[in-house]
Simulated scan of single mutants.
Amino acid sequence: MIRVLFNKKGGVGKSSLAVNLAAISASKGYKTLLLDLDTQCNATSYLNAQTEVQDDTIAGLFEQTITFHIRRRPADEFAVATSIDNLSIIPGSTRLSEIESELDSRHKIYKLREALDAVRDKFDRIYIDTPPALNFYSLSALIAADSVLIPIDCDDFAIQGLFSLQQHIAEIREDHNEKLQIEGIIANQYLSNAKLPNRIIETLLDEGHPVLPVYVTQSVKMRESHQEKKPLLQLAPKHKLTQCLLDIHEYLEQEGIGHL
């Protein structure tokens, strides 16, 4: 099962959600892999998984597809263990931006899918954190994935960009990956007693958008977990925000396509 966290808008919590959902998945006994495809490497930093050996990052996984004199290593050989049992990560790299144009010009857009298909039997769940743009890497992730989760922050810009985003995903499904499904829209930074978030969610639901029924509340605890480099399940297992994320994971496993 491969899930992608994607939105073309930055600052909507993709990395935070990817790390925390992957950590919860691992805590439930699923052997879980997280890929960091964002050149900002936020997911990698969050899990304190930086490496100085660039060949052992996601850039190395891609770069070997354009270097023919070396042995191609399977994706699981790029994965490093984290402090969480059952959770590994393929660390991000700023070098992704340097090799993107060559990968694109040499039509390597399906190489991530090939790499992950080859290790599906080694992981129960794979999560992919993507850059805030529809570029080579986010497209590679969507081509490789079974489903996409779309985080939004609860402001008017969320509605403005959502229709075009869903259109892009529909085109990718038609042209590249017929099994790709939008598993849900995750409302992030939600304030229950504020009028704007509730109005936005009501509008999205009225228009038929698949907003998940659990909303991620706004809390300073998320920033604290970034600073401590610990997912919320480790830092504050009984916190309300942690419970929101646990509820989202449970919903996805029971009601989404995660049970397939």
Rank of each mutant, 00 (worst) to 15 (best):
Leu134Gly: 10
Asn198Gly: 08
Leu196Met: 02
Lys111Met: 04
Asn135Val: 02
Ile99Tyr: 03
Phe123Ile: 05
Glu183Cys: 11
Ser219Tyr: 06
Ser138Val: 07
Asn20Asp: 15
Ala49Gln: 00
Phe157His: 06
His226Leu: 14
Tyr127Val: 03
Ile89Trp: 01
Thr217Val: 14
Asp76Ile: 01
Gly184His: 03
Ile84Gln: 07
Gln189Met: 12
Ala59Tyr: 00
Val80His: 09
Asn7Gly: 12
Ser97Thr: 09
Arg173Asn: 03
Ala145Ser: 13
Asp117His: 10
Glu178Ser: 08
Ser27Leu: 10
Ser147Ile: 09
Ala18Met: 04
Val119Gly: 10
Lys221Gln: 08
Ile24Arg: 11
Asn42Ala: 14
Ala59Leu: 03
Gly11Glu: 06
Arg72Pro: 02
Gln254Asn: 15
Leu165Ile: 12
Gln160Cys: 09
Asp121Arg: 05
Ile159Lys: 00
Ser16Tyr: 07
Asp121Tyr: 00
Ser27Arg: 07
Gln189Ser: 12
Val148Pro: 01
Asn48Asp: 07
Ile128Gly: 04
Tyr251Ile: 05
Gln254Phe: 08
Leu212Phe: 04
Glu102Lys: 14
Lys179His: 12
Glu207Ile: 11
Glu224Thr: 10
Leu241Asp: 09
Gly161Ile: 04
Leu37Tyr: 05
Lys229Ser: 11
Tyr30Ala: 09
Leu196Ile: 06
Gln254Ala: 09
Ala194Leu: 05
Phe157Tyr: 01
Gln243Gly: 10
Leu235His: 03
Val4Gly: 03
Leu142Cys: 02
Pro151Val: 01
Leu252Thr: 09
Phe157Thr: 12
His168Gln: 11
Pro197Glu: 02
Pro91Trp: 02
Ser140Met: 03
Ala115Trp: 01
Leu96Gly: 11
Leu245Thr: 06
Leu241Pro: 09
Leu149Lys: 02
Ile152Asn: 02
His259Ile: 05
Ala158Phe: 05
Gln181Glu: 14
Ile169Ala: 11
Ser140Phe: 04
